[in-house]
Amino acid sequence: MQRGTRLAVAAAAALVWGEWLNWRWSQALVGNREGPSEAVVVLGFRNPQPAANFINRWRVRAGIRSITGDHARDTRLIFSGGATGKGVAEAELLADYARSVLRWDGEVLLEDRSRTTWENVINVIPLLEDVDRIKIASQPAHALKARAYLRRQRPDLAERLVRADDYRPGEWLLGKPLLALYGLWTLRGIRAGERKLSPR
Rank of each mutant, 00 (worst) to 15 (best):
84 T>A: 11
38 E>Q: 15
137 A>N: 05
157 L>F: 06
170 G>M: 12
14 A>W: 07
187 L>T: 08
145 K>S: 05
196 K>L: 13
48 P>S: 12
115 R>Q: 15
86 K>V: 09
96 D>I: 05
118 W>T: 12
130 D>F: 01
32 N>P: 04
180 A>I: 03
164 A>G: 09
133 R>Q: 14
42 V>K: 00
112 D>V: 06
21 L>K: 10
96 D>Q: 15
116 T>R: 09
20 W>S: 12
24 R>S: 14
7 L>K: 08
61 R>M: 12
70 D>K: 10
83 A>K: 13
156 D>F: 01
183 G>M: 03
43 L>G: 03
120 N>G: 07
15 L>C: 06
193 G>D: 06
1 M>Y: 08
30 V>M: 02
7 L>V: 09
178 L>S: 12
6 R>T: 02
91 A>R: 03
97 Y>M: 05
3 R>F: 14
52 A>G: 08
146 A>D: 08
83 A>W: 09
68 T>N: 07
186 T>R: 07
51 A>N: 11
35 G>K: 10
38 E>N: 09
23 W>D: 12
98 A>V: 09
85 G>C: 08
126 P>V: 14
79 F>V: 07
83 A>I: 00
34 E>N: 09
137 A>Q: 04
65 R>Y: 05
174 L>Q: 06
87 G>I: 10
46 R>E: 11
179 L>M: 11
76 R>N: 01
114 S>I: 08
136 I>S: 00
107 E>G: 03
113 R>E: 14
63 G>N: 00
9 V>F: 11
161 L>W: 02
71 H>T: 13
39 A>C: 11
190 I>Y: 04
84 T>N: 13
88 V>E: 13
4 G>N: 06
150 L>D: 03
37 S>G: 10
116 T>D: 08
138 S>W: 00
125 I>W: 07
116 T>A: 08
75 T>C: 09
2 Q>E: 12
36 P>I: 00
152 R>F: 02
192 A>H: 04
148 A>Y: 02
40 V>E: 03
63 G>T: 00
123 N>K: 09
46 R>N: 14
8 A>L: 14
198 S>A: 15
132 D>M: 06
107 E>M: 12
165 D>T: 07
197 L>D: 05
175 G>N: 13
3 R>V: 14
165 D>K: 14
118 W>C: 02
164 A>N: 03
165 D>M: 10
30 V>S: 01
75 T>Y: 06
38 E>S: 13
193 G>I: 01
17 W>I: 09
154 R>N: 13
141 A>P: 05
11 A>S: 12
28 A>M: 06
24 R>Y: 12
193 G>W: 03
156 D>Y: 02
97 Y>I: 04
199 P>F: 11
127 L>A: 10
118 W>N: 09
116 T>Y: 00
112 D>F: 03
76 R>E: 07
83 A>Q: 10
54 F>W: 12
85 G>Y: 04
50 P>M: 11
3 R>H: 13
152 R>H: 13
